[in-house]
């Protein structure tokens, strides 16, 4: 976990993620489920709950 939440950005360490992105999870496959926390309510929301009523657009991000 300490590696995931790095304190210092290092492009050399992150570059393989960009290179490997096309090979992991493909269009046409089923999306994996994970529990998330709703920022507003604090309640748990599973990713699979997001597509129950229709398509969902999911953006991952942070301050930058």
């Amino acid at each position: 976990m300490s590696d995931y939440n790095y304190a210092v950005f290092d492009m050399k360490a992150e570059a393989p993620n960009f290179q490997g992105f096309p090979a992991n999870l493909h269009v046409g496959e089923r999306a994996p489920d994970f529990p998330l926390e709703d920022l507003e309510s604090g309640e748990t929301v599973n990713i699979k709950d997001l597509w129950t009523d229709g398509p969902v657009v999911v953006e991952f991000g942070s301050f930058t």
Binding site: Y4, E14, N17, F18, G20, F21, N24, L25, H26, V27, G28, E29, R30, A31, P32, D33, F34, L36, I47, K48, L50, W51, P55, V56, V57, V58, E59, F60, G61, S62, T64
Partner: peptide
């Protein structure tokens, strides 16, 4: 979740019925 989906800083995914990517 971030790790399973590819770890990139600003990805976007669209899922359809049943979680179809």
């Amino acid at each position: 979740a971030h790790q399973a989906y590819g770890l990139l800083p600003n990805m976007t995914w669209i899922f359809g019925h049943g979680g179809l990517i």
